[in-house]
Amino acid sequence: MFRFIHLLIDDFVNLLFPTLCLGCKQSLIANERVLCSACRINLPETNQHQEPYDQNLLNKFAGKVPVRFLASYLHFTKGGVVQNLIHSFKYRGQKEAAKELASWYGSQLKIESKQLQEIDVILGVPLHLSRYKQRGYNQADWIAQGLAEALNMPMVIDVLNRNAFNESQTHKNRLERWENVNKVFSIVKPDLVKNKNVLIVDDVLTTGATIEACAIELVRAGCKSISVITLAVADR
């Protein structure tokens, strides 16, 4: 009886204040989260985890840091549904959407990929404190949390520190991005990553400069290996 009343209340609230699909902006129905079924089915998945040694991706880090596994969940195109999703939790406060998407991908990885079985810890790329206060959360940590729960792996925070409030990377080329993040990060808790297989998590992979800068500091701290997962990859 209580469950029935609870469902009625939920339906009434959704009627007055409908939860909208972040893709098409249509109302979500029961058991739909973040995206409606149609938008979720049509997500532009990369399936990169099935080819974890894709040279087009690994070349982003070739000769710089030893990346053992690299995969992104979705293709990012300007004006597309994935951009709407990324912007929803990066700029519009819908951090739960980041965790939900990561959970979907984590569940898929658990079944379809063996490359992550040796991962010891998962961590998100940190925000500078001023950006964190402005946003109220770090979207990469929410992505890391979704993956950690789906993969049943430990997540660590406050391992890396972002020392400088660097400019947005959006309109920069690879060299400019690297100059923008070079020496921005430092290790705060090296014992949490020393001799560990570390999975770095972020929202979008473009040139890889930010991930590279994080990875360099982790390698210096003595981590055993670096793997990378992002929710999206910018197709260029």
Rank of each mutant, 00 (worst) to 15 (best):
R236G: 05
E179Y: 09
N197T: 11
F12W: 13
V159N: 12
Y73H: 14
D11M: 09
G136C: 09
V82Y: 08
S37K: 11
D141H: 09
E167F: 03
V159W: 12
E149Q: 06
G23L: 04
E112C: 01
A71K: 04
I211G: 00
N14W: 02
A140W: 04
N47A: 10
Q55H: 06
C24W: 00
G146D: 06
P52A: 09
S225Q: 06
L147H: 09
V233M: 12
K95H: 13
F2L: 11
Y91W: 07
K196T: 09
A213M: 10
V159R: 12
A144E: 02
K114D: 15
E179V: 03
R174Y: 12
P66V: 00
A148W: 03
Q115D: 15
K114S: 15
I211D: 03
F69S: 08
V121R: 10
S88I: 02
D54H: 08
S72R: 10
L35A: 09
D11W: 07
A97T: 07
K183R: 15
A232F: 04
Q55R: 12
Q94P: 00
E51Q: 13
V188N: 10
E100L: 04
E32K: 05
L8G: 15
R3Y: 00
L15K: 03
Q50M: 14
H87D: 02
T206H: 09
G63H: 09
G136Y: 07
M1W: 01
A234H: 04
D158Y: 05
I187E: 08
K133Q: 13
R92V: 00
Q48D: 14
A144R: 03
G106E: 03
M153L: 15
S186N: 14
L35D: 07
N166R: 01
H6A: 14
E179P: 00
A102K: 01
F17K: 04
D203M: 05
G136Q: 08
G23E: 02
I86T: 03
I157S: 12
N47Q: 12
R131Q: 12
H87F: 02
K99A: 15
K90W: 09
M1S: 06
L28G: 07
V193L: 06
N182Q: 15
D120Y: 05
D203Y: 08
K60I: 00
